[in-house]
Simulated scan of single mutants.
Amino acid sequence: MSELSGKVALVTGASSGLGAAVARLFGQRGATVFGVGRDEQRLAAVFAEVPGGRYAVADIAGAQRCREVVEQCTAELGCLDILVNVAGQHAMRHTARVTDEEWERDLAVNLNGPFYLSRAALPHLLEAGGNIVNVASIAGIEGQAYSAGYCAAKHGLVGLTRALAVEFTAQRLRVNAICPGGMLTPQVTGFTLPEGADPNLVMRVASPRGLSEPEAVAKLVAFLASDDAAAIHGAIYTADNGKTAG
């Protein structure tokens, strides 16, 4: 078991899906978790199962709110050892019909937020000898139909992970990313196809093994965040039931 005892972890997207699974698992493994999400009722329900956890209702798309979240976490809990950027959004759209606002929102949530949070957290993580785990997607290493904004942002998040890993190679910080495939989360199970979309193109993203439980993927996040992964830096792990194996 990857132990996280005594660590303070900030986890975004903590109100549902993978973020909620990560928050619960980190709490079970001894971490003090500061969760961030947009739905206060769901956050409260999740953190009723996270011993000693705290949470903040926030939209991580803006730089100022990301700074405030990091400041609140460190003020309340005294330090920050782990940042897990889980929050994301994905809506399938015909690219020719994507509005400026939809494109900008895709980038804001899936890429800008993780950058703003990482930038705000870096001084604390460097002091603690901590780490960042970014949750990208297999859309960050391959193309997916009707997902231009999501793919662009997740490719960017993979690039951000590698850029930070190189920049901080000689310092007390680890930065890694995971690229999950389809998971049994509301974002995936509740998706709808754009009108007139070709379902054969959409099904190219599916693995014959089906969808993963978020709790299974959370275990990979916990490992990378733990001292058991001390030698892992700048890595991009897939958790996709073999979808991108070849």
Rank of each mutant, 00 (worst) to 15 (best):
V188N: 08
A229T: 07
A163Q: 10
E167N: 14
T161W: 01
A218L: 04
V188R: 07
S226W: 10
G196H: 08
L193W: 09
E195L: 09
R174Y: 06
A231Y: 03
F191C: 01
S226N: 00
A218I: 08
T169L: 15
V188W: 10
A225R: 00
V205F: 03
R162W: 12
R162D: 07
T189E: 15
D228M: 06
P208I: 15
A231Q: 13
P186M: 07
P194K: 08
T169V: 11
A170C: 00
G190A: 11
D227L: 01
T185A: 05
V202Q: 00
N200C: 00
K219F: 00
R209G: 12
A206K: 06
V166N: 10
V205N: 01
D228V: 05
D227T: 07
L193M: 14
G181A: 05
F223E: 01
G181I: 08
K219D: 13
K219C: 09
L211N: 08
G159P: 14
G190P: 03
I178T: 06
T192H: 14
F191Q: 11
D228Q: 10
A165R: 10
Q187P: 00
A222N: 08
A231M: 05
S207L: 05
S226R: 00
L193Q: 11
L211Y: 15
G210P: 04
S226M: 02
Q187E: 04
G196E: 05
T169N: 08
K219H: 10
